[in-house]
Design a protein around this nucleic acid. Structure first.
Lengths: 132, 132
DNA sequence: GTTCGTGCAAACGGTTTGCAACAAT
DNA sequence: ATTGTTGCAAACCGTTTGCACGAAC
């Protein structure tokens, strides 16, 4: 609660009720919701919240580095509160997206690619989730 | 031309004029066009071609393994005639998508990820293209 | 009293669907 | 005659935009 306020202020985001509600949901979401999913969820607590505000807010958060978007779901962007580098695993059956820690997978050779100057990369894996 | 016909037949796709036109464009495209881009390009040669037919055709081609889709562009799927495993590089400035051969980049550790059974993966890189 | 944020509806862009006309077997 | 293919328009879904109202410095 208090830390959310601080987190927004730290990034120069004026903390309004709507933004706090969105932040509360999306920053501690372990899932990777789309904007519409955020809207539907947060609307239950704040019924006056408009779709436009959710989109505006999410875009603002991305701009300010609080979230990043991922292009791993068809048809929609998903928002990820895990802004540090990491990889993704997508469950074939459910479409669920999981974060994979950066150190869990190693990539090599990307620095010596002729013709490309790689600034950033990620591994996108697909398969079946199984009990750990 | 002849080989296109064969390629379609081999995969059980009835080769119509529209499908051949789409196949001709998309199978030898070095770019990664969206469905709408395919429509616009192919329409110049076959002006009667409808949007729905292009979408139907592309989906059919994907289903039959002639193309694969890639989720690397915002707002739209792109179609890739390179169906073998490979990686992607996306130019930050232009948004252009380049294919990176499978052997150019090596990934390790994905087999020993606890909790995930990785069936497939790819590395998506972003950065600046430079003269090779 | 301006500036900034919100809400609503309309617009938009990519894609799918329903359906009637039309081949092709 | 049945089946598969096409074209058109409408519908759909995710997202953005225009604009008027309202809140906050």
């Amino acid at each position: 609660m208090r830390d959310l306020l601080v987190a927004l202020r730290e990034r120069g985001i004026q903390p309004t009720a709507q933004r706090l509600a969105v932040a509360q949901f999306v920053l501690e979401a372990k899932s990777h919701p789309t904007a519409d999913e955020v809207w539907e969820k947060v609307r239950k607590r704040s019924p006056t919240l408009s779709r436009a505000t959710v989109y505006n807010t999410l875009n603002l958060f991305v701009e300010k580095g609080l979230l990043r978007t991922q292009l791993v779901r068809e048809g929609a962007l998903v928002f990820d509160p895990y802004v540090a580098r990491h990889h993704h695993f997508i469950d074939d059956e459910t479409g669920e997206i999981y974060d994979v820690p950066w150190e869990a997978v190693k990539v090599s050779g990307e620095k010596s690619l002729r013709g490309y100057e790689v600034r950033d990369y990620q591994v996108v894996m697909r398969g079946k989730r199984r009990a750990p």
